[in-house]
């Protein structure tokens, strides 16, 4: 029903740089559209999105609010059903991938269970997935160390700062070791200093673990700093206007953000965002 009427021809998928190994993509979207039926009429959240995310990539989604970033992640996670087009996750349908527990999802709010301690919160997916008690203990300790929360195992969420809660929620998504991480503005509510710190930690973690990460943000520096690939989106209807492959090295100290290379990529992202706003 939601024929993509006035959508511009989507950008071609990223030109495959020679070095990427030919491998089944982790996430692949083709002609993906999603229209919400609301009381005020249909809202087209995604329109004709084509995208490929390869193994080990760190892909950021950037765009003004309402451009469908969250909706895209939710479709990948099988939390929303597309109205047209096709998505696959690890070569499976989103539902099959969800049933196979193929991804960890970090929501915009930490959403910790207030009646559980931090360690019990991190253990929640492990309990549900039926890990043995010993394995649960070992994994909780390991993932809490990964996000620098060792020593806070017995605290309740309200005893932790917002940044620490968000880190706990990341630990919870990491605990069962899915290869794909879907993160929806995980640091959106945090102040800049905490955010810088968490960005740095997240990059280290990604470098260490070889996971594939889809990361929603509306901060240009954050997107450029973190990503191997930046997907620029624009609203009404949500669509992909540009896909930028980062030329930054994998090793990224925080001060890389002052280099000309970094600023050039940031400039291209800004141009892409402006173009997306302009033609509406």
């Amino acid at each position: 029903m939601n024929v993509a009427t006035n959508t511009p021809t989507p950008n071609p998928s990223p030109q495959g740089r020679g070095e990427r190994i030919a491998q089944a993509p982790v996430v692949e979207a083709r002609g993906l559209s999603l229209t919400f039926e609301t009381n005020d009429g249909p809202v087209q959240a995604l329109s004709n999105v084509d995208l490929t995310v390869g193994k080990g990539e760190f892909v950021s989604f950037i765009g003004p609010s309402g451009c469908g970033k969250t909706t895209f992640l939710r479709v990948v996670a099988d939390l929303e059903q597309p109205t047209a087009g096709h998505v696959s996750v690890n070569g499976l349908s989103p539902e099959a991938a969800r049933r196979a527990r193929a991804y960890g999802y970090v929501f915009q709010a930490a959403g910790l269970f207030p009646w559980r301690t931090i360690e019990k919160n991190v253990a929640l997916p492990l309990e549900i997935m039926g890990f043995s008690a010993a394995e649960q203990k070992e994994r909780v300790a390991r993932t809490l160390a990964l996000v620098n929360l060792t020593g806070f195992e017995r605290k309740y969420p309200w005893q932790l700062s917002g940044g620490m809660q968000q880190r706990a929620s990341i630990a919870r998504a990491l605990a069962f070791d899915a290869d794909l991480l879907l993160m929806d503005e995980p640091f959106g509510a945090l102040d800049e200093i905490v955010r810088d710190h968490l960005n740095e930690q997240l990059l280290k973690l990604w470098a260490r673990t070889d996971k594939t990460i889809c990361f929603v943000t509306h901060s240009i520096p954050e997107a450029v700093y973190l990503s191997t690939k930046i997907v620029v989106m624009s609203p009404r209807p949500g669509r992909v206007t540009d896909i930028i492959e980062s030329t930054l090295p994998k090793e990224r100290p925080l001060d890389i953000r002052e280099t000309p290379e970094f600023l050039e990529i940031a400039h291209r992202v800004r141009e892409g965002l402006r173009a997306g706003m302009g033609d509406e």
Binding site: L79, R98, R101, Y105, F113
Partner: peptide, 13 residues
Amino acid sequence: EAIQLDLMRTYNA
């Protein structure tokens, strides 16, 4: 909250 229910769904609970 909706995100807590969604979270359980992502675990295929």
